[in-house]
Design a protein around this nucleic acid. Structure first.
Length: 273
DNA sequence: GCAAATGTTTGGCC
DNA sequence: TGGCCAAACATTTG
């Protein structure tokens, strides 16, 4: 589940490591993750030179001399820079470079590898719809966004909606909402000014420690090393039954729509009660 | 052993 | 708008 901290780390790494590499060939083992046929996809990228790598939300965007290669790692994605004689056991996509290194891209469910011509980037709906990067969002922008939610949007659905803010996923959100002392089902329009400010700070506070450590422990960098953000750094996410670090109440796991949430029932009271 | 459940995402349907 | 389902699967649970 690469989310903003992992994606930002990975994209910075790739920008350094891959710059000026030339794509010699492309191997695809999961055609369903492409937006083109395998043949078109290969033809579009071969001989391309990697000029820079950036990101938007959960997308890694590789800018090549032959257009964009857009990667969304879905759940459990992994990008490795290796050589042909040390390929990982599983991969969906391999880019072979002329210097004999290769980039393998894997994910175990729901990932995408799209190609778009230079000027056609925003014809890809999944890119065009993205909201501002969560790590670049200012407090003013965030407040404006909140004010535009006039309906019954719940705070968890709001934060996970990539068209509003891009980069938050269902792993970091538990700690973000805990830091903000908000129940996932709170209605956005009911938040007080103090709660809105607190939520902004919680988003930054929930993501930046992991960003500093190169991402979460369950994801690796280009060379297979795990991120430094470990289970001990997580406050309440995935810690059902543990004592809340703030008040000691056992942490609960609850269903919120079709996803699970971890909350402290004392610090994050259910708005229905 | 094996079937069932679970989940880090997104889109589409009602 | 929200809720729910489905989909390319790997791992844990009963």
């Amino acid at each position: 589940m690469p989310e903003a901290p992992e994606i930002a780390s990975r994209s910075a790494e790739m920008n350094t490591a891959l710059k000026n590499k030339v794509i010699e060939s492309v191997e695809v083992s999961q055609p369903k993750c492409l937006n083109l046929s395998v043949e078109e996809f290969k033809a579009a990228l071969v001989t391309g030179v990697i000029e820079s790598v950036s990101y938007h939300g959960k997308w890694i965007m590789m800018n090549t001399s032959r257009g964009w290669l857009l990667l969304n790692l879905g759940m459990g994605g992994e990008i490795l820079l290796v050589t042909r004689d040390s390929l990982p056991a599983k991969y969906r996509l391999v880019l072979d470079f002329t210097d004999k290194t290769c980039l393998t891209i894997n994910f175990w469910w729901f990932g995408y590898a799209f190609h778009a011509k230079q000027e056609e980037l925003f014809t890809i709906p999944m890119i065009a719809r993205l909201g501002p990067n969560v790590l670049d969002l200012t407090q003013e922008d965030f407040k404006t966004l909140l004010e535009n939610q006039k309906s019954k949007t719940r705070v968890k659905a709001f934060l996970l909606d990539q068209s509003k803010i891009a980069g938050i996923g269902n792993a970091y959100i538990h700690d973000i909402l805990f830091l903000a002392r908000l129940h996932p089902k709170r209605i956005v329009s009911s938040l007080s000014d103090a709660e809105r400010t607190g939520l902004y700070n919680a988003i930054q506070g929930g993501l930046r420690p992991s960003l500093k450590k190169g991402g979460a422990f369950y994801e690796t960098n280009l060379y297979g090393q795990k991120g430094g953000f470990s289970m001990e750094d997580i406050l309440i996410g995935y810690k059902e039954g543990n004592a809340c670090p703030n008040c000691g109440t056992p942490i609960e796991k609850i269903r919120t729509g079709s996803t699970s949430s971890f909350i402290c029932p004392t610090c994050q009271p259910d708005p229905a009660f």
